[in-house]
């Protein structure tokens, strides 16, 4: 089994690295006891969920099994947890309410998208990636992050934004979703056993930016202790 893992690691180093890089922010958040804050707690839960799903995918991928079901599930969980994190980070009710409503609608849409591209759910071997949910998630997250930046700058809640944890976390997410927003629509066609669309070097983009995003999140988590918990 370990040989399979090593072989997969050698075959897809970037994808493998994106799995284990999650341990860095997770450890920092744990050491900083950041889970005492609601927003950071959701980020912490998201990182745990991400690590579990990624490890499961890593395990099955090393055995050349279809792992897209987990990826599709990850989209819903990722959006819910990260938008929940932003929900607690927003100060204004103007953003909180739409965020909640959009969250609910997104879950319905994603479930519909999964069922739409996979009429036979039990056929896990041919399970396909969602068509629109991934793109929609990117667009929505970019929008919320921009709104968060707007609110942060307007309210001047921090004296130095470079030591403000959520600035780094949101910057990482913004880069990740910006890179993903144009790649996501073709992922459905690229992740197929047969007749797949060749993405070439673009196939590595989500993994690469996932690593960058995790490093930014780690930086944000590192700055957590410098701020008072109640500030967010």
């Amino acid at each position: 089994m370990i040989e399979n893992y090593i072989l997969f690691f050698q075959r897809s180093p970037l994808s493998s690295l994106s799995v284990f890089v999650t341990l860095i922010p997770l450890t920092i958040l744990w050491l900083r006891k950041a889970y005492s804050n609601e927003a950071f707690r959701l980020l912490f839960v998201y990182l745990i969920v991400k690590l579990v799903i990624d490890l499961t995918m890593f395990h099955f991928a090393s055995r050349s099994q279809n792992t897209i079901l987990y990826y599709n599930l990850n989209i819903i969980l990722r959006y819910l947890l990260l938008s929940g994190m932003l929900f607690y980070s927003f100060q204004s009710e103007i953003f909180k309410k739409p965020l909640m409503i959009v969250g609910g609608l997104f879950v319905f849409f994603s479930v519909w998208d999964i069922l739409h591209v996979n009429p036979v759910l039990s056929d896990l071997h041919n399970h396909a990636m969602v068509l629109y949910a991934n793109t929609l998630e990117s667009v929505l997250m970019i929008f919320w992050i921009l709104m968060y930046f707007y609110e942060t700058v307007q309210s001047m809640r921090t004296a130095n934004i470079l030591t403000f944890p959520f600035f780094w976390i949101c910057s990482g997410l913004l880069l990740y979703y910006s890179a993903n927003v144009f790649v996501a629509p073709v992922m459905h066609y690229a992740n197929k056993w047969e007749g797949r669309f060749e993405l070439g070097f673009l196939y590595q983009v989500p993994d690469l930016f996932e690593i960058i995003c995790m490093l930014f999140v780690s930086l944000g988590a590192w700055f957590f202790s410098l701020h008072e918990h109640g500030q967010y």
Binding site: L174, V183, L202
Partner: peptide, 26 residues
């Protein structure tokens, strides 16, 4: 592939610009 790459690059540039702008504006 190149079209997606260019679009992605433009989007990334915009993201970097937004981050830089937030730092500058703040």
């Amino acid at each position: 592939q190149w079209a997606i790459f260019i679009a992605m690059l433009a989007m990334l540039m915009m993201a970097v610009f937004v981050i830089a702008f937030v730092i500058y504006y703040q």
